[in-house]
């Protein structure tokens, strides 16, 4: 099932700081919902292990994330693919960072994803809602990184 995603988020940090954060697997591990580990397997490419859960629904995923078409520190594309007990998915998105004052910036994103297998076959009705929720969780976590930096966060 095809999913279109897109939107923009205000991040309480500088554009440069956001760029660094988005390129930091430690930050991404904390922000991607259910992400348990990201292991670098090549330049800008990571193997990820996820334990995803939304309400009662949950399952483990293995996948890869790679960053490409980088235009530091303003834009990059991300490609995600994975498979697990609930099904499989892949998607690409383009991120653009626009400064919005010294300590704030906008992250504009647009992309498409495709989800297949069990979860698409029996859950298409609420799949887009759930995806939106997960994206929301990602940005909420990302904002939190800047609001209350914990050790290892991007500076």
């Amino acid at each position: 099932m095809k999913l279109d995603i897109g939107g923009s988020e205000t991040i309480p940090g500088s554009a440069d700081a956001l760029w660094v954060a988005l390129n930091d697997p430690k930050v991404l591990t904390r922000c991607i919902p259910g992400c348990k580990s990201m292991v670098e397997i090549g330049p800008d490419a990571y193997k990820v292990d996820m334990q995803l859960r939304v309400a009662a629904v949950g399952g483990s995923f293995e996948g890869e994330i790679s960053l490409f078409d980088k235009e530091a520190p303003r834009a990059c594309s991300i490609k995600v693919s994975g498979a697990g007990s609930l099904g499989h998915g892949n998607g690409t998105a383009r991120f653009e960072i626009e400064p919005d004052g010294d300590h704030s910036c906008r992250l504009i994103y647009k992309g498409t994803g495709e989800i297949g297998g069990l979860v698409a076959g029996v859950g298409q009705r609420i799949l887009s809602s759930v995806s939106k929720h997960l994206i929301g969780r990602f940005f909420a976590a990302l904002r939190k990184e800047f609001e209350a930096p914990v050790s290892g966060a991007a500076e």
Binding site: A56, V57, G58, G59, S85, L86, L118, V119, V122, G123
Partner: peptide
């Protein structure tokens, strides 16, 4: 997970979408 009437949870269990 809590189960009460199970009318929604059990189908999710049966399909292995939920695995408490």
């Amino acid at each position: 997970r809590i189960i009460a009437g199970g009318q929604t949870l059990i189908p999710m269990l049966a399909m292995r979408l939920a695995r408490p």
